[in-house]
Write a protein that binds this DNA or RNA. Structure first.
Lengths: 344, 344
DNA sequence: TTGTACGCGTTATCAG
DNA sequence: CTGATAACGCGTACAA
């Protein structure tokens, strides 16, 4: 476990200066005599040379790693986003530092700070923090930022937004077209703009149809985590079923919650989708793995990650005309958890 | 977007030397007059100072970020492992660089190399590469390595192993105890030791019972990805069902595949679990979200990540007596996808 | 208790 | 084409 070779070691062994070594090893395109170049390469290989990015980074002040901040990769939706970012990053020679904030604003700020200390020059963030001081500080330091999933009201920040309102509207509308009149909406806490916008879409569709909305909102204060969203779906379903008359269709705030809705319904012997239809939101791949396969509104997670990464790298490469905003449209994924409403 | 402040800027503004600034800002415990200390702190805050880890790292040759290499976080199993690692890392002031190899040995080697260039001192890896030259090179450089999920035959490497054989045995045994005699095993390609060991466990249990094994192995060459495992489950189920007589229970290589098995069975109108029982492997959280909730053999993913990270940090802190090996035991998770075999 | 000066591994500048 | 040498931001002997 001896010390790794540096360009100095190579220089010494090859009888050249460190400058020359650096020139050939970094593919700088700087002219070096062919014989010398080959010799340096040979010696470097012999010495098992591995370039030290830290030295390089300190010198060039550019890190080639981008920070990704999401609530949690335990939700496959965000896992896909991160995965998309990572793929695109790798193709461009970048690495990724992923951070899970667990919906905790303090943790989000801590992570952003750590990322800054590590000299990240680019950041992709699904921010759930109320404030944005941490983002402004980052931007002030010249860090390029791409906000995904959650819109961030801030100048000089690139956005990949998603039309949540249209998504909520699309879901409700679809249910209405299938003949449903009593459509319940099972919502998480409405503490994020994205969630409120889905609700708005649902509300608009119901109002247009002259129907009474039926909303069940999750209680606050539950710990965030893998199974929480599922359990919330079960709980809200119980609440919705107490209504008189009960809904013939339930639209859930996201797919994980929809799984909970389905589970609770199945547990009660309700036939799916004949008795009650269920609609999700997100379009995670697991939707097609349950029974009945989940009809849902898809938000392109993986593609969103790739797109965000591409945009960020464009910004990093100083492309002034790089696109700084995009808004993704929802798409309906018709599977089998929604049926026509039974004639009354 | 002016240049970030350095300790030199602070030193100048506070009329002290950079040495003093460094001493107070790095909490070195080195004696500094209280008044001076407070002044430095004040000036640092005023200047919005953010320590540059790159400089620190170059100086101290210690990176505080650990590399994590897994097949893909698109599989919730590995997502949980990474999540566990990250949580534990954060608690200890470490950051995590996660890399998805997509089961591609070349990619795995590339990632390990990149990690080395970034001067990671610790590595947690679920290696699927045939060779181990890249790991030996890393170890030779003094990098501490913890192998998880996949056993790696190599000196000086810490292991968190899992008793796959016992898991396979446990699954088959459970099915046997429930009265099943024709138990099919739906396997991925048997190109990894872990998978072969699950098979062995199954085979042992069948042999003990004097029963004929019934194995369907996935074809090679399919692209690895999120839905692949699910689709494989469906396909292998079709193959298993062609047997005469068909199995009354199917044991799947992992939970995702079990979802595919269930889906294919449901699609054919087979009643679950009355007609055919299904058993998974891994114990991902989604198992309880499908219908019927999946009975499975659990491998503690999240805990494994935490444990690996703890072990690694112990090694990094030079704890010579740090545990260098652990073998986790499978646990049966009884849910509802397995029923007693119908009397014949 | 404080300051000076050097070096970590690399690249860039400038002179040959 | 090649080589000295000065940075990059920081921590730390060593000296005062």
């Amino acid at each position: 476990m001896k010390k790794p070779a540096t360009i100095r070691d190579i220089a010494r062994a090859a009888n050249v200066s460190t400058a020359t070594v650096s020139r050939v090893l970094s593919n700088s395109g700087y002219p070096v005599r062919a014989a010398v170049r080959e010799n340096v390469l040979r010696v470097a290989a012999e010495l098992n040379y591995i370039p030290n990015m830290v030295g390089k980074q300190l010198k060039k002040n550019t890190s080639h790693t981008i920070g990704v901040v999401v609530p949690t990769i335990a939700n496959p939706f965000y896992a896909s986003v991160v995965f998309g970012v990572e793929e695109e990053a790798r193709l461009n020679g970048y690495g990724v530092m992923a951070c899970n904030t667990l919906q905790d604003p303090a943790l989000e700020e801590e992570y952003v700070r750590t990322l800054l200390e590590k000299q990240v020059k680019g950041l992709i963030i699904a921010s759930i923090a109320g404030g944005k001081a941490h983002l402004e500080r980052a931007a002030g330091l010249g860090v390029r930022i791409v906000a995904v999933d959650q819109y961030v009201e801030m100048d000089g920040i690139a956005q990949i937004d998603f039309d949540y309102r249209a998504g909520g509207y699309m879901a409700a509308k679809y249910l209405l077209e299938r003949g449903h009149r009593r459509i319940g909406y099972a919502a998480f806490r409405l503490d994020r703009p994205s969630r409120r916008r889905i609700l708005e879409g649902y509300l608009d569709a119901m109002r247009e149809a002259g129907l009474e909305p039926l909303v069940a909102e999750a209680d606050a204060g539950e710990r965030y985590g893998a199974g929480y969203e599922f359990d919330t779906g079960m709980k809200l379903t119980r609440r919705l079923l107490e209504c008189d008359p009960p809904p013939t269709a339930i639209f859930a705030g996201n797919d994980l919650m929809a799984f909970g809705v389905i589970q609770e319904l199945a547990r009660r012997g309700v036939r799916l989708p004949e008795d009650v239809s269920v609609m999700g939101f997100d379009g995670i791949e697991f939707g097609r793995m349950i029974h009945p396969p989940l009809t849902t509104v898809r938000q392109p997670d993986y593609e969103m990650g790739k797109m965000a990464c591409r945009m960020l790298i464009g910004l990093l490469h100083g492309a002034e005309h790089a696109p700084r905003a995009a808004v993704l449209r929802p798409a309906l994924v018709e599977r089998a958890s929604v049926a026509d409403a039974a004639a009354e």
